[in-house]
Design a protein around this nucleic acid. Structure first.
Lengths: 121, 121
DNA sequence: TTACGTGCAAAATCTTTGCCCCTGA
DNA sequence: TCAGGGGCAAAGATTTTGCACGTAA
């Protein structure tokens, strides 16, 4: 794959953020640096980067795909009130059971839903 | 909420199936019994049933929402080759850790990705 | 040079919604 | 009766794609 300024920009934005932006949010950030970048290019590159394993997609519950540049194995907590996504590094699960069932696991996506401490008040 | 023939049909289809159909698949099934049912009605009722907790939505990776009528706590394995969704009843996770962080958990959705035993051959 | 990438806009998908008629209670 | 529900089609929202031009190698 050839180098492209736009693709690196998209990759940098996703990996530089601690939230879990949608394509549109990434597009808006990208336009601040590269005003002519198009939404199509952002989508194209997000898909390419996901295929290459340079970022992870999160399908939450809101119909939009969120992108996560943190490649470490972690889960997510999604607040049902404010929609905030919180990273959870504490819970890692055993894949042994699945391997014993003949399933080879390459990745996992775990979401927990509920209320965050802010919204509980 | 008033009784409706269409809503019960949608509910029956989802809970009667062991796969995890999309709205469109449910619509096609529904039309075999209720030929005049509309896609809008299917969507409306799926959303109502999800709100009522009579079914669960699965946001996998394919942009379409899948519906699961099995309300027991279980995870899903998604084959990256054939797209098959396999129920995993074996792995239940502890929520204690999250509660200790001030997060109240009301539900979870865990997906494992990899190759199923058929596709490994 | 030239195959890959981009910008732009149109198209494709999936889902929601408005409106008017129908129906369960 | 009459408020909630359905059918239909149009609208929304998000994502993908075709095409002509630009650019990295």
């Amino acid at each position: 794959m050839r180098f492209s300024r736009q693709r690196e920009l998209v990759a940098d934005i996703v990996s530089g953020r601690k939230d879990h932006p949608t394509a549109d949010a990434i597009y808006l950030s990208a336009r601040e640096i590269e005003p002519n970048i198009s939404l199509g290019t952002v989508y194209r590159n997000l898909k390419l980067l996901a295929d290459e394993g340079r970022l992870v997609t999160l399908e939450t519950s809101d119909k939009k795909i969120h992108y996560d540049g943190d490649l470490s194995i972690h889960s997510h907590f999604i607040c049902e009130d404010c929609g905030k996504i919180i990273d959870l590094f504490e819970s890692a699960h055993s894949h042994e059971l699945l391997e014993n069932m003949g399933l080879s696991v390459s990745s996992e996506k775990c979401f927990y839903y509920g209320k965050c401490s802010d919204c509980k008040r």
